[in-house]
Simulated assay, not measured.
Amino acid sequence: MKIAAIDIGSNAARMQISRVLENDGKISFKKVEYVRFALRLGHDVFNDGEISPESEVRIFKLLNAYKLLMDLHEVKDYLICATSAMREAGNANAIVTRIQNILDMKIHIIDGSKEAELINDVVVQALDDSNYLHIDVGGGSTELNIYSGRKKVASRSFKIGSVRLLEHKEREGDWEKMKKWIEMHIDPEKSEITAVGTGGNINKLFNLSVNHEKDTSISIKELTRLKDYVAGFTYEERINKLRLNADRADVIVPAAEIYLNAMKWAGAKYILVPDLGLKDGIIKMVYEKIQNRKKGA
């Protein structure tokens, strides 16, 4: 059985198709298809408050392409979740309605807490009983979650994201709010804490690190070095020399600043990079929805 997740973010829209595997009573998901396209909805919304007609056309075309690909894979079920940019777009509900009427595809606009919950459901599986600060940086928002003994003890969403910073659309005081929240919940003198990073930018920075094939984490010192290294290249050089995607090349440095600030305020010396994200949480939710339907049948 194959299932799919579509994540419409502020920077890009991703679709992952996974096969459900069962081995000795344990369920796992094997990725069989992954497609990412830079919609850059945050550029419209954070500047103008709405998704432009041109971007709406691209959403239609992309979802239609995703629908055809899911048909080819004979996907049993799927779910579409949209995050920060569509949460804030004044015309989001009208677009969702038009897409459902024309393509018969329903977009679920989820709030920051639901976004964090879906990511947490898969990230927690990569943790042990130590203390962790989970930092998920998107284009329009950053979700922070604190874990102790594999249990979430605090959670908060902040309107600070890579695209929002790139467009200089963060609000005055947002950084200070994040700093105060972290310092209120974490005392590095009482207990050691490790950061956990999710999001495309931390994955790319991790892959640029010297020990990425040996370790699953990088130090704050190495992450600082990587940020400065990438920042030393022009936008064109990042694309041609570092081989970054065009929509990654401009947001990767602002994203790195978010991870580094959160780590510094929490006193975290290392950041674990498990290569998990919202799409993986959506996949898990789709599978659970199918199982619940079977139980109700």
Results as ranks from 00 to 15, higher is better:
Asp136Gly: 13
Ile95Trp: 09
Ala268Leu: 09
Ala5Asn: 15
Glu74Ile: 02
Ser219Arg: 05
Ile17Gly: 15
Ala85Tyr: 13
Ile193Ala: 09
Val253Phe: 03
Phe29Asp: 07
Leu144Gln: 05
Lys159Thr: 13
Thr97Tyr: 12
Glu257Gly: 04
Thr142Gly: 05
Asn145Ser: 15
Ser10Asp: 08
Pro53Gln: 03
Trp265Lys: 03
Gly197Val: 07
Ala297Met: 14
Leu68Glu: 13
Asp7Leu: 12
Leu79Lys: 15
Phe206Glu: 07
Tyr235Gln: 10
Ala297Glu: 03
Ile239Met: 13
Ile160His: 11
Glu288Trp: 05
Leu39Trp: 11
Ser191Ala: 14
Ile59Ala: 00
Met15Gly: 08
Ile182Leu: 11
Asn145Ala: 15
Asn64Gly: 06
Arg14Ala: 08
Thr216Pro: 00
Ser162Trp: 07
Ile3Gly: 07
Ala94Arg: 00
Ala249Arg: 00
Arg14Gly: 01
Gln291Phe: 05
Ser191Cys: 13
Lys214Arg: 14
Ala38Cys: 03
Lys264Gln: 14
Glu288Cys: 03
Lys61His: 14
Tyr132Trp: 04
Glu74Ala: 11
Ala297His: 14
Val196Asn: 03
Ser155Asp: 00
Thr198Leu: 08
Lys76His: 05
Val20Ile: 10
Asn207Asp: 14
Ile109Glu: 04
Glu236Gly: 00
Asn11Lys: 04
Asp128Thr: 02
Lys61Cys: 13
Leu69Phe: 06
Ala246Thr: 07
Arg58Met: 15
Leu63Asn: 08
Leu208Cys: 03
Thr234Arg: 05
Leu103Asp: 05
